[in-house]
């Protein structure tokens, strides 16, 4: 089965063609364009305009690269939520148009579940606890009784959002994560910041406020280092708690922030100390991508899910545990 997937929940527009062959995930193409705001953070309407503008050319590129004809495609998947309303609606409209024009079945996919499924498919992880760390989302997700349940999450802003806001204050362009990672490598001194773990949940807004109030007096390298160490340790701790609680022995990373090498190192160490396995897909499948949508759409379709156009209304606050996982 061959599926076309369109991702567009936030700043990234991704279009991919994926084939399921011999139970394996084969990615035929995975193209993307990222909206970068001229200043400040993501403006939802601007991001949606970006997606609308780039969609036709990106679609052609992806199909061309995959070397398939549109008639060979069996299924149109798109990110139905959670995400920014204008972006979701733009992508949904495109998916519906393609589905109607070429008479293909359509499938709205939960963005967070897609991160988890592509990670599993590409790394060989079977039953992981996923740390999903991106700009807007920070969640610890795992399968329990047929649903991907959220065992821990941020109580306020996402980890990436925290890094971006810190970056903006010190004049780093969006996305700030990679720059902060470089700065942090030169940091030597740990500056104490609030460490905010509540059970299996985390909170970043207080840390951000504290970090911003300290940047005048400290070097930005030390600040970046301290911010990373504090936030990433919190993420490792709540993930470990979820693993201990669920008695699961695999940890999987997903989301753009997971491409940070220091976060990977911390998570790997946590896994090793508990004798668990550590999995991380390559960077292009950590960040938002079309392949994860295309792949999850196939899994859902094969498990018997069907959607009419009426079911494809976008869901800005779509939670992972609203989907029954019939395919796992």
């Amino acid at each position: 089965m061959i599926s076309l997937g369109i991702e567009g929940t936030a700043h990234t527009l991704g279009i991919a063609i994926v084939e399921k062959i011999n139970e394996k995930c084969k990615i035929l193409s995975n193209e993307s364009r990222m909206y970068k705001p001229a200043k400040g953070g993501i403006h939802p309407r601007e991001a949606a305009n970006h997606h609308a503008m780039h969609l036709p050319s990106l679609l052609h590129e992806s199909i061309k690269k995959a070397g398939v004809e549109i008639k060979e495609i069996d299924l149109i998947g798109f990110s139905i939520g959670p995400g920014l309303g204008p972006c979701l609606r733009t992508v949904a409209t495109a998916a519906r148009t393609i589905a109607i024009k070429y008479k293909k079945p359509i499938m709205g996919v939960n963005h967070c579940i897609a991160h988890l499924e592509i990670g599993k498919a590409l790394t060989g992880s079977h039953d992981p606890v996923l740390l999903y760390a991106s700009g807007g989302n920070t969640q610890v997700i795992s399968l329990l009784e047929k649903k991907y349940r959220i065992f821990g999450e941020t109580l306020d802003i996402g980890i990436g959002n925290c890094l971006d806001k810190f970056g903006r204050a010190i004049g780093i362009p969006f996305p700030a994560g990679p720059h902060i990672e470089k700065l942090a490598r030169k940091g030597r001194k740990y500056i104490p910041l609030p460490y905010s773990v509540k059970g299996m949940d985390v909170s970043f807004s207080g840390i951000l406020t504290a970090a911003l109030s300290l940047i005048k007096n400290e070097s930005i390298e030390d600040m970046a280092y301290s911010l990373q160490e504090t936030c990433f340790s919190m993420l490792a701790e709540v993930t470990e708690r979820a693993m201990a609680h669920l008695e699961k022995e695999e940890v999987l990373l997903g989301g753009g922030v997971a491409s940070n090498m220091r976060l990977q190192e911390i998570m790997k160490k946590m896994a090793m100390e508990r004798g668990a396995k550590f999995f991380v897909p390559s960077r292009q499948y950590l960040v938002d991508n079309g392949a994860m949508i295309a792949w999850t759409a196939i899994l859902m379709h094969e498990a018997g899910y069907r959607m009419s156009l009426g079911d494809t209304k976008v869901r800005q606050n779509f939670r992972t545990d609203e989907v029954e996982v019939k395919w796992s």
């Binding site: 740990y190 104490p192 460490y195 160490e229 504090t230 340790s233 490792a236 701790e237 911390i266 998570m267 160490k269 946590m270 100390e273």
Partner: peptide, 13 residues
């Protein structure tokens, strides 16, 4: 002790 945390942070927590 949690080896994934830096020493200063780990001890403080």
């Amino acid at each position: 002790r949690k080896g994934y945390r830096i020493k200063e942070l780990d001890e403080e927590i």
